[in-house]
Amino acid sequence: MPKNILSVENLNGGYEVFVGRRRVFVHAVDDVTFSLHNNEVLGVAGESGCGKSTLAKMIYGAIIPPLLVKGGSISITTKGGEVLNINKLSIDEVRRKIWWIEISYIPQNSMNVLNPLKRIKDQFIDVFRYHGIKMDKTETVEHLRDTLTTLGLPPEVINAYPHQLSGGMRQRVVIALSLVFNPRIILADEPTTAVDVVTQRTILSLLKEWRENNKSSLVLISHDMSVHAYMDDRIAIMYAGNVVELGSSLDIFKEPLHPYTRALIESLIRKGDKSIRKGLAGQPPDLINPPPGCRFHPRCPYVMNICRSEEPVTTFLDNDRYVRCWLYTSSR
Protein backbone atom coordinates (compact mmCIF):
# COMPACT_ATOMS: atom_id res chain seq x y z
CA MET A 1 0.00 0.00 0.00
CA PRO A 2 1.65 3.25 -1.13
CA LYS A 3 1.89 6.09 1.34
CA ASN A 4 -0.06 9.28 0.63
CA ILE A 5 1.91 12.50 0.88
CA LEU A 6 -0.86 14.80 -0.25
CA SER A 7 -4.55 14.26 0.07
CA VAL A 8 -7.33 16.43 -1.24
CA GLU A 9 -10.82 15.93 0.09
CA ASN A 10 -14.05 17.39 -1.24
CA LEU A 11 -12.27 20.49 -2.43
CA ASN A 12 -14.57 23.30 -3.58
CA GLY A 13 -13.61 26.69 -4.85
CA GLY A 14 -13.40 29.18 -7.63
CA TYR A 15 -13.17 32.83 -8.52
CA GLU A 16 -15.30 35.69 -7.41
CA VAL A 17 -15.52 38.15 -10.25
CA PHE A 18 -17.64 41.10 -11.19
CA VAL A 19 -19.64 41.11 -14.39
CA GLY A 20 -20.64 44.75 -14.61
CA ARG A 21 -21.88 45.39 -11.06
CA ARG A 22 -23.06 41.87 -10.44
CA ARG A 23 -20.87 39.61 -8.37
CA VAL A 24 -20.69 36.11 -9.80
CA PHE A 25 -18.91 32.99 -8.67
CA VAL A 26 -17.02 30.89 -11.19
CA HIS A 27 -17.17 27.42 -9.71
CA ALA A 28 -13.88 26.14 -11.13
CA VAL A 29 -13.19 23.27 -8.74
CA ASP A 30 -16.17 21.28 -7.54
CA ASP A 31 -15.97 18.50 -4.98
CA VAL A 32 -12.57 17.16 -5.96
CA THR A 33 -11.12 14.25 -3.98
CA PHE A 34 -7.86 12.47 -4.69
CA SER A 35 -4.55 11.68 -3.10
CA LEU A 36 -0.99 11.76 -4.26
CA HIS A 37 1.17 8.78 -3.39
CA ASN A 38 4.79 8.80 -2.55
CA ASN A 39 7.06 8.35 -5.58
CA GLU A 40 4.56 8.61 -8.42
CA VAL A 41 3.51 10.79 -11.29
CA LEU A 42 -0.08 11.92 -11.15
CA GLY A 43 -1.41 13.51 -14.31
CA VAL A 44 -4.30 15.92 -14.43
CA ALA A 45 -5.89 16.04 -17.87
CA GLY A 46 -8.73 17.97 -19.45
CA GLU A 47 -9.61 20.69 -21.94
CA SER A 48 -8.59 24.25 -21.21
CA GLY A 49 -11.03 25.98 -18.93
CA CYS A 50 -11.91 22.83 -17.01
CA GLY A 51 -10.31 23.92 -13.76
CA LYS A 52 -6.89 22.21 -14.01
CA SER A 53 -4.87 25.32 -13.31
CA THR A 54 -7.19 26.42 -10.54
CA LEU A 55 -6.75 23.05 -8.90
CA ALA A 56 -2.99 23.48 -9.22
CA LYS A 57 -3.12 26.89 -7.56
CA MET A 58 -5.20 25.48 -4.71
CA ILE A 59 -2.88 22.55 -4.12
CA TYR A 60 0.05 24.92 -4.17
CA GLY A 61 -1.71 27.11 -1.63
CA ALA A 62 -1.52 30.24 -3.77
CA ILE A 63 -4.98 31.27 -2.73
CA ILE A 64 -5.14 34.96 -3.47
CA PRO A 65 -8.38 36.81 -4.19
CA PRO A 66 -10.33 36.53 -6.42
CA LEU A 67 -9.54 32.82 -5.91
CA LEU A 68 -11.50 31.41 -2.97
CA VAL A 69 -11.63 28.02 -1.30
CA LYS A 70 -15.22 27.32 -0.26
CA GLY A 71 -14.76 23.99 1.43
CA GLY A 72 -12.81 20.77 1.73
CA SER A 73 -9.24 20.22 2.79
CA ILE A 74 -5.78 19.78 1.36
CA SER A 75 -3.34 18.09 3.70
CA ILE A 76 0.31 17.47 3.13
CA THR A 77 2.80 15.32 5.00
CA THR A 78 6.04 17.25 5.36
CA LYS A 79 9.57 15.92 5.23
CA GLY A 80 9.55 15.98 9.03
CA GLY A 81 6.42 13.83 9.15
CA GLU A 82 4.12 16.65 10.23
CA VAL A 83 0.67 16.80 8.62
CA LEU A 84 -0.27 20.33 7.57
CA ASN A 85 -3.59 21.52 6.27
CA ILE A 86 -2.64 23.91 3.49
CA ASN A 87 -5.91 25.77 3.26
CA LYS A 88 -5.90 26.46 7.00
CA LEU A 89 -2.49 28.16 6.92
CA SER A 90 -2.03 31.84 6.19
CA ILE A 91 -0.41 32.72 2.89
CA ASP A 92 2.75 33.77 4.71
CA GLU A 93 3.01 30.43 6.54
CA VAL A 94 2.48 28.60 3.26
CA ARG A 95 5.21 30.73 1.72
CA ARG A 96 7.72 29.94 4.45
CA LYS A 97 6.91 26.30 5.24
CA ILE A 98 5.58 24.80 2.04
CA TRP A 99 6.69 26.60 -1.08
CA TRP A 100 9.88 25.32 -2.64
CA ILE A 101 10.70 23.28 0.48
CA GLU A 102 7.80 20.82 0.35
CA ILE A 103 6.23 21.61 -3.02
CA SER A 104 7.87 23.41 -5.86
CA TYR A 105 6.35 24.71 -8.99
CA ILE A 106 7.25 24.71 -12.67
CA PRO A 107 5.22 27.37 -14.43
CA GLN A 108 3.61 27.26 -17.83
CA ASN A 109 5.94 29.48 -19.88
CA SER A 110 9.09 28.53 -18.09
CA MET A 111 11.38 30.09 -20.71
CA ASN A 112 10.28 33.56 -19.71
CA VAL A 113 10.08 33.48 -15.96
CA LEU A 114 13.67 34.37 -15.09
CA ASN A 115 14.52 37.87 -13.93
CA PRO A 116 16.28 39.44 -16.94
CA LEU A 117 18.60 41.54 -14.80
CA LYS A 118 20.16 38.82 -12.64
CA ARG A 119 22.80 36.22 -13.29
CA ILE A 120 21.63 32.63 -13.08
CA LYS A 121 23.69 31.92 -9.95
CA ASP A 122 22.16 34.93 -8.19
CA GLN A 123 18.70 33.66 -8.97
CA PHE A 124 19.62 30.44 -7.16
CA ILE A 125 21.17 32.30 -4.23
CA ASP A 126 17.99 34.38 -4.03
CA VAL A 127 15.88 31.29 -3.46
CA PHE A 128 18.07 30.41 -0.46
CA ARG A 129 17.66 33.94 0.79
CA TYR A 130 13.87 33.90 0.39
CA HIS A 131 13.67 30.96 2.75
CA GLY A 132 16.24 32.21 5.20
CA ILE A 133 18.51 29.25 4.55
CA LYS A 134 22.13 29.90 5.45
CA MET A 135 24.61 28.75 2.86
CA ASP A 136 28.20 29.13 1.90
CA LYS A 137 28.33 31.02 -1.37
CA THR A 138 31.30 29.26 -2.98
CA GLU A 139 30.07 25.85 -1.88
CA THR A 140 26.61 26.52 -3.27
CA VAL A 141 28.06 27.67 -6.57
CA GLU A 142 30.14 24.47 -6.72
CA HIS A 143 27.06 22.41 -6.02
CA LEU A 144 25.14 24.37 -8.66
CA ARG A 145 27.73 23.61 -11.28
CA ASP A 146 27.20 19.91 -10.64
CA THR A 147 23.42 20.18 -10.73
CA LEU A 148 23.46 22.11 -13.99
CA THR A 149 25.85 19.64 -15.54
CA THR A 150 23.55 16.74 -14.71
CA LEU A 151 20.79 18.67 -16.46
CA GLY A 152 22.97 18.88 -19.54
CA LEU A 153 23.95 22.52 -19.22
CA PRO A 154 27.52 23.83 -19.54
CA PRO A 155 28.81 25.02 -16.14
CA GLU A 156 29.49 28.56 -17.45
CA VAL A 157 25.73 29.07 -17.45
CA ILE A 158 25.80 30.06 -13.80
CA ASN A 159 27.50 33.32 -14.68
CA ALA A 160 25.21 34.12 -17.61
CA TYR A 161 22.20 36.38 -17.77
CA PRO A 162 18.92 34.84 -18.97
CA HIS A 163 18.99 36.65 -22.32
CA GLN A 164 22.30 34.93 -23.15
CA LEU A 165 20.69 31.48 -22.99
CA SER A 166 18.43 29.74 -25.46
CA GLY A 167 14.83 28.96 -24.60
CA GLY A 168 15.53 25.31 -23.87
CA MET A 169 18.45 26.20 -21.60
CA ARG A 170 16.33 28.62 -19.66
CA GLN A 171 13.71 25.96 -19.21
CA ARG A 172 16.31 23.60 -17.76
CA VAL A 173 17.48 26.30 -15.41
CA VAL A 174 13.90 26.70 -14.20
CA ILE A 175 13.68 22.97 -13.60
CA ALA A 176 16.97 23.08 -11.71
CA LEU A 177 15.61 25.96 -9.65
CA SER A 178 12.58 23.96 -8.64
CA LEU A 179 14.76 21.05 -7.52
CA VAL A 180 17.09 23.12 -5.36
CA PHE A 181 15.71 22.03 -1.97
CA ASN A 182 14.79 18.48 -3.06
CA PRO A 183 11.07 18.94 -2.47
CA ARG A 184 8.97 15.80 -2.23
CA ILE A 185 6.30 17.18 -4.56
CA ILE A 186 6.73 19.00 -7.83
CA LEU A 187 3.81 20.71 -9.43
CA ALA A 188 4.22 21.25 -13.14
CA ASP A 189 1.54 23.34 -14.82
CA GLU A 190 1.66 22.69 -18.57
CA PRO A 191 5.48 22.62 -18.43
CA THR A 192 5.95 21.94 -22.13
CA THR A 193 3.07 23.73 -23.79
CA ALA A 194 5.10 26.47 -25.46
CA VAL A 195 7.97 24.37 -26.80
CA ASP A 196 8.61 22.28 -29.87
CA VAL A 197 8.20 18.54 -29.67
CA VAL A 198 11.93 17.76 -29.46
CA THR A 199 12.57 20.09 -26.52
CA GLN A 200 9.38 18.84 -24.94
CA ARG A 201 10.68 15.29 -25.00
CA THR A 202 14.06 16.29 -23.51
CA ILE A 203 12.48 18.21 -20.70
CA LEU A 204 9.99 15.51 -19.85
CA SER A 205 12.77 12.91 -19.81
CA LEU A 206 14.85 15.07 -17.50
CA LEU A 207 11.95 15.45 -15.10
CA LYS A 208 11.22 11.76 -15.25
CA GLU A 209 14.81 10.76 -14.57
CA TRP A 210 15.23 13.18 -11.72
CA ARG A 211 12.00 12.08 -10.12
CA GLU A 212 12.94 8.43 -10.30
CA ASN A 213 16.32 9.11 -8.73
CA ASN A 214 14.93 11.17 -5.91
CA LYS A 215 11.79 9.17 -5.18
CA SER A 216 9.69 12.31 -5.25
CA SER A 217 6.22 12.81 -6.65
CA LEU A 218 5.17 14.87 -9.60
CA VAL A 219 1.78 16.39 -10.30
CA LEU A 220 1.70 17.00 -14.03
CA ILE A 221 -0.98 19.22 -15.43
CA SER A 222 -1.44 19.11 -19.18
CA HIS A 223 -4.15 19.11 -21.79
CA ASP A 224 -1.98 16.88 -23.96
CA MET A 225 -2.90 13.20 -23.60
CA SER A 226 0.32 12.06 -25.26
CA VAL A 227 2.33 13.77 -22.52
CA HIS A 228 0.26 11.88 -19.98
CA ALA A 229 0.75 8.62 -21.80
CA TYR A 230 4.51 9.14 -21.67
CA MET A 231 4.82 10.32 -18.08
CA ASP A 232 2.01 9.26 -15.78
CA ASP A 233 1.57 6.50 -13.26
CA ARG A 234 -1.99 7.60 -12.55
CA ILE A 235 -4.29 10.06 -14.30
CA ALA A 236 -7.15 12.22 -13.08
CA ILE A 237 -9.48 13.38 -15.86
CA MET A 238 -11.16 16.71 -15.17
CA TYR A 239 -14.25 18.07 -16.79
CA ALA A 240 -15.92 21.37 -15.80
CA GLY A 241 -14.43 21.41 -12.31
CA ASN A 242 -15.08 17.76 -11.50
CA VAL A 243 -12.67 14.87 -11.52
CA VAL A 244 -14.75 12.52 -13.67
CA GLU A 245 -12.39 9.60 -13.68
CA LEU A 246 -9.23 8.58 -11.87
CA GLY A 247 -7.09 5.50 -12.20
CA SER A 248 -3.73 4.08 -13.16
CA SER A 249 -2.69 5.28 -16.59
CA LEU A 250 -2.48 1.73 -17.87
CA ASP A 251 -6.11 1.07 -17.00
CA ILE A 252 -7.32 4.40 -18.29
CA PHE A 253 -5.63 4.15 -21.63
CA LYS A 254 -6.62 0.48 -22.01
CA GLU A 255 -10.17 0.83 -20.84
CA PRO A 256 -11.49 4.34 -20.48
CA LEU A 257 -14.82 4.31 -18.67
CA HIS A 258 -16.22 7.83 -18.69
CA PRO A 259 -17.49 8.92 -22.13
CA TYR A 260 -15.38 12.07 -21.87
CA THR A 261 -12.21 10.10 -21.20
CA ARG A 262 -13.03 7.92 -24.13
CA ALA A 263 -13.40 10.94 -26.38
CA LEU A 264 -10.07 12.31 -25.17
CA ILE A 265 -8.23 9.06 -25.83
CA GLU A 266 -9.89 8.52 -29.19
CA SER A 267 -8.53 11.85 -30.29
CA LEU A 268 -4.99 10.49 -29.95
CA ILE A 269 -3.09 9.25 -32.97
CA ARG A 270 -2.12 5.60 -32.70
CA LYS A 271 0.48 3.70 -34.60
CA GLY A 272 -1.01 1.93 -37.63
CA ASP A 273 -4.43 3.48 -37.27
CA LYS A 274 -5.56 5.22 -40.46
CA SER A 275 -9.05 6.31 -39.51
CA ILE A 276 -9.87 9.99 -39.28
CA ARG A 277 -9.72 11.36 -35.74
CA LYS A 278 -13.01 12.20 -34.17
CA GLY A 279 -13.30 15.37 -32.19
CA LEU A 280 -15.78 16.04 -29.44
CA ALA A 281 -18.55 18.37 -30.51
CA GLY A 282 -19.42 21.41 -28.42
CA GLN A 283 -17.63 23.59 -25.92
CA PRO A 284 -16.88 23.04 -22.23
CA PRO A 285 -19.75 24.42 -20.15
CA ASP A 286 -19.96 27.85 -18.66
CA LEU A 287 -18.68 27.51 -15.09
CA ILE A 288 -20.83 30.41 -13.91
CA ASN A 289 -24.07 28.60 -14.79
CA PRO A 290 -23.12 24.93 -15.12
CA PRO A 291 -25.75 22.67 -16.68
CA PRO A 292 -27.88 20.77 -14.15
CA GLY A 293 -27.22 17.13 -13.45
CA CYS A 294 -24.09 15.74 -15.00
CA ARG A 295 -22.11 18.63 -16.45
CA PHE A 296 -21.08 16.55 -19.41
CA HIS A 297 -24.61 15.59 -20.48
CA PRO A 298 -25.04 18.17 -23.30
CA ARG A 299 -22.08 16.64 -25.12
CA CYS A 300 -22.43 13.02 -24.02
CA PRO A 301 -23.25 10.43 -26.70
CA TYR A 302 -24.71 8.06 -24.06
CA VAL A 303 -26.90 10.60 -22.32
CA MET A 304 -29.80 9.21 -20.24
CA ASN A 305 -32.70 10.95 -18.52
CA ILE A 306 -31.16 10.81 -15.08
CA CYS A 307 -28.06 12.61 -16.36
CA ARG A 308 -30.09 15.73 -17.12
CA SER A 309 -31.37 16.17 -13.59
CA GLU A 310 -29.08 14.56 -11.06
CA GLU A 311 -25.38 14.85 -10.48
CA PRO A 312 -23.66 11.46 -10.79
CA VAL A 313 -22.16 9.92 -7.67
CA THR A 314 -18.62 8.64 -7.37
CA THR A 315 -18.39 4.93 -8.12
CA PHE A 316 -15.28 3.13 -6.89
CA LEU A 317 -14.30 0.21 -9.06
CA ASP A 318 -11.40 -0.71 -6.80
CA ASN A 319 -9.31 1.07 -4.23
CA ASP A 320 -7.62 3.33 -6.71
CA ARG A 321 -10.03 3.68 -9.58
CA TYR A 322 -13.22 5.69 -9.64
CA VAL A 323 -15.56 7.22 -12.16
CA ARG A 324 -18.39 9.72 -11.86
CA CYS A 325 -20.97 8.60 -14.37
CA TRP A 326 -24.50 7.20 -14.16
CA LEU A 327 -23.57 4.50 -16.70
CA TYR A 328 -21.60 2.67 -14.03
CA THR A 329 -23.84 3.29 -11.05
CA SER A 330 -26.83 1.42 -12.39
CA SER A 331 -24.83 -1.76 -12.96
CA ARG A 332 -24.00 -2.08 -9.27
Binding site: R95, W99, W100, S104, V113, D126, Y130
Partner: peptide, 19 residues
Amino acid sequence: DFIIYSFLQGAPTGSIRYM
Protein backbone atom coordinates in the same frame (compact mmCIF):
# COMPACT_ATOMS: atom_id res chain seq x y z
CA ASP B 1 5.71 36.35 -15.38
CA PHE B 2 9.04 36.53 -13.61
CA ILE B 3 7.57 38.57 -10.76
CA ILE B 4 4.75 36.08 -10.27
CA TYR B 5 7.28 33.28 -10.49
CA SER B 6 9.44 34.72 -7.73
CA PHE B 7 6.31 35.21 -5.62
CA LEU B 8 5.57 31.52 -6.06
CA GLN B 9 9.18 30.71 -5.22
CA GLY B 10 8.38 32.14 -1.83
CA ALA B 11 10.00 35.55 -2.14
CA PRO B 12 9.00 37.84 0.72
CA THR B 13 7.10 41.03 -0.13
CA GLY B 14 10.15 43.21 0.32
CA SER B 15 12.20 41.28 -2.22
CA ILE B 16 9.36 41.35 -4.74
CA ARG B 17 8.94 45.09 -4.33
CA TYR B 18 12.64 45.64 -4.85
CA MET B 19 12.56 43.45 -7.94
